[in-house]
């Protein structure tokens, strides 16, 4: 066998290893989804979705948990959307290339790398204690808003950057002010991209348990929240709680709740992917 034969075999071997590695993650993912489905799908019925939590696994439901998750989703969106887009517009359109702008940029990159549980500690001290919001939905949504702020800012900036100079020039040449140009041209043209980023960020927020546990969201809440100042639980916390019980029946409940949570996450991601594809198909400038 010549040297180049050996090299060719090595090359082939690596190719097979490459396929193996690429597929192993997906195989694990598949195993995992199937396992959850087998464990949990039989548990999902109308009662499970509409029952309050209970100490008995068979009568426990996830009503309070998914109601809490929806509340958190909406409140976080309402808080994080204007803040994140506002910050991105400022950084992209207003701020000059100063030291402050540079600092803001590094700072945002740093915030994106702060572990979510640290945001929980921040929320605990600032929102729960200083602002006396307690372990309420509002405190939770504020905490998660800060957590996803860097993601929203980064994706919004990218979308704004993609709006061509010529559109802005056209607007300015007709006597538009800076804000008029941003509001009438830049934001509508980049809206698809901004929305995609926000939905992806929200899907991240919906899956978070750690920061909410730290701010004192409870595993057991007897009623679904009705105002932003009510105590709450969310699906990930409910799953965590059931997973840490020794009884097999609670694990089945957890699997059922996971299916619901994954449906929400995949739905959000699906919408984001759809929006992105539609954006790409739109007429190019």
């Amino acid at each position: 066998m010549t040297n180049s034969d050996i090299n060719r075999y090595k090359d082939k071997a690596f190719q097979i290893f490459g396929i193996f590695c690429t597929l192993i993650g997906l195989v694990v993912l598949a195993v995992f989804l199937i396992d959850i489905a087998i464990d949990g799908i039989s548990r999902i019925d109308w009662d499970f979705l509409t029952s309050l939590p209970s100490r008995r696994a068979s009568s426990a439901g996830i009503y309070t948990a998914w109601a809490g998750t929806l509340w958190i989703l909406v409140l976080t969106a309402v808080i994080a959307f204007p803040l994140g887009v506002g910050a991105a517009v400022y950084l992209e359109e207003y701020s000059r290339k100063t030291k402050l702008a540079n600092f803001l940029e590094i700072n945002i990159a740093n915030l994106a790398g702060v572990p979510s549980i640290i945001y929980g500690l921040l929320g605990l001290e600032i929102f729960v204690r200083q602002m006396r919001l307690g372990g309420s939905l509002l405190a939770g949504a504020l905490t998660l808003s800060l957590l996803i702020l860097p993601i929203i800012i980064v994706t919004t900036r990218e979308s704004i950057k993609a709006v061509p100079r010529s559109v802005r020039d056209g607007s300015y040449a007709l006597g538009a002010s800076k804000w008029q140009t941003i509001w009438n041209q830049v934001l509508p043209a980049s809206f698809g991209g901004i929305l995609t980023g926000i939905i992806l960020a929200l899907s991240r927020a919906v899956g978070e348990a750690a920061p909410l546990i730290v701010i004192g969201a409870l595993a057991y809440v007897p009623f679904a929240p009705t105002t932003p100042l009510d105590e709450f639980t969310v699906l990930p916390i409910q799953i965590f709680n059931w997973t840490s019980r020794p009884q097999e029946a609670f694990l089945t409940n957890a699997a059922g709740a996971i299916i619901v949570l994954l449906c929400i996450t995949f739905l959000l991601n699906g919408i984001a992917v759809y929006l992105r594809l539609r954006q790409q198909k739109k007429v190019k400038w």
Binding site: L29, F32, I36, V206, P236, T243, A255, L261, T265, N269
Partner: peptide
């Protein structure tokens, strides 16, 4: 793989 909530990974 990156979009699945970590609590779900924990269960797994």
């Amino acid at each position: 793989l990156a979009t699945i909530p970590t609590v779900v990974y924990g269960f797994f």
